[in-house]
Design a protein around this nucleic acid. Structure first.
Lengths: 183, 183
DNA sequence: GGTCTCATGTAAATAGTTACATGATTAT
DNA sequence: ATAATCATGTAACTATTTACATGAGACC
């Protein structure tokens, strides 16, 4: 546990908001950090069991529905320590891997139009992201400044906004240069 | 082979430039697409064997040095077809995973200064990337427009430039907002 | 009656990194 | 001499996705 995978820490982060089931964690990931993180059940459930085994969380068995039990996990002091320790550690940079750029780099081999289609699709996705960010910003600003986490959440939102706008500009520029290509 | 991994296609792409050994492929990856892609020997050598086994490349055994043989691979027509097929396929978007944003999102739990350190380190990395891109641009523009691949390569370079500049701006903005925080 | 959401887990497969083993040639 | 680079591969491990198995309750 806790080697390179960040699943355990993501879970601990959400458990600081209150006790949660595996299903709840999955929902929380999708709803609040879905823009820059993802976790599958195949990782969450084993990680929860490992967290409980290592004393970083405790499991309370809720009411059973049929033969299925609902398990709720709460963070422990050791869990809080581990989360803080990990948060203070330098950010690990993964090896870069951008399939769009890979296809563009060898783009001439498939003809200009294939590359144009890729960039157009990408521009559409980035525009959809930008729209989503705008909606999130409105919701956040509407709520007012009560939450002490807000400055941190806004930082992640701004990252998305800057990135999406820059990449839309790049895509438009790139489409313009591709239009003048012969092949 | 050729399921989800793009190692085989990356290799095919470089083999269109001429026959290469596994070692050559590794060098080519680092020198030309290192900014947005990476491959390790542990992937390259098995992928080359699979490519040869599937008829997408042919292996010629070069002169042996000691008990070690040098293997050189050349792309076949089937290999070219496979590359073109893959290039025309829509770009697969991987699940997002940004550890910096994850740490910032839960940043309050570790205190303001930890987040500031993360963003500062990130800004430094992006600045280093921006400098590298500037050097690459000079080299590319100095060579003149003889290479028909140049427009494609410039598109990948511009992606890096746009992205790095936007993220540097984001980092500066973010550091400014973090400075005014109490905790 | 059917579909959707709630809910927990396991198994199998794939992807990818890192470490290990081996040894020749070239530059300092 | 010794370090770096050339060079090929395997093994072990870690991470992660996807498919499978199971079933309740709510809504239409």
């Amino acid at each position: 546990m806790l080697k390179q995978s960040r699943t355990a820490q993501v879970i601990l982060g959400f458990l600081t908001w209150g006790p949660k089931s595996g299903y709840d964690v999955k929902k929380a990931v999708g709803a609040s950090i879905g823009g820059f993180w993802s976790e599958s059940f195949g990782q969450i459930y084993p990680a929860l069991a490992a967290l409980a085994g290592g004393g970083l969380a405790v499991r309370t068995d809720g009411p059973r529905t049929g033969r299925r039990r609902q398990h709720t996990y709460s963070i422990t002091d050791a869990g809080r320590d581990e989360l803080r320790r990990w948060l203070a550690e330098p950010v690990a940079m993964p090896p870069p891997r951008n399939e769009l750029l890979l296809k563009l780099f060898f783009g001439r081999d498939a003809g200009r139009d294939a590359s144009i289609a890729h960039v157009r699709a990408f521009a559409g996705e980035q525009q959809a992201l930008a729209d989503r960010y705008a909606a999130i910003r409105e919701r956040m600003e509407g709520q007012g400044g009560g939450n002490p986490n807000l400055p941190y959440w806004l930082a992640t939102l701004r990252h998305g906004e800057h990135s999406a706008h820059a990449l839309i500009a790049w895509a438009e520029e790139t489409l313009a240069t591709f239009k003048d290509l012969s092949s």
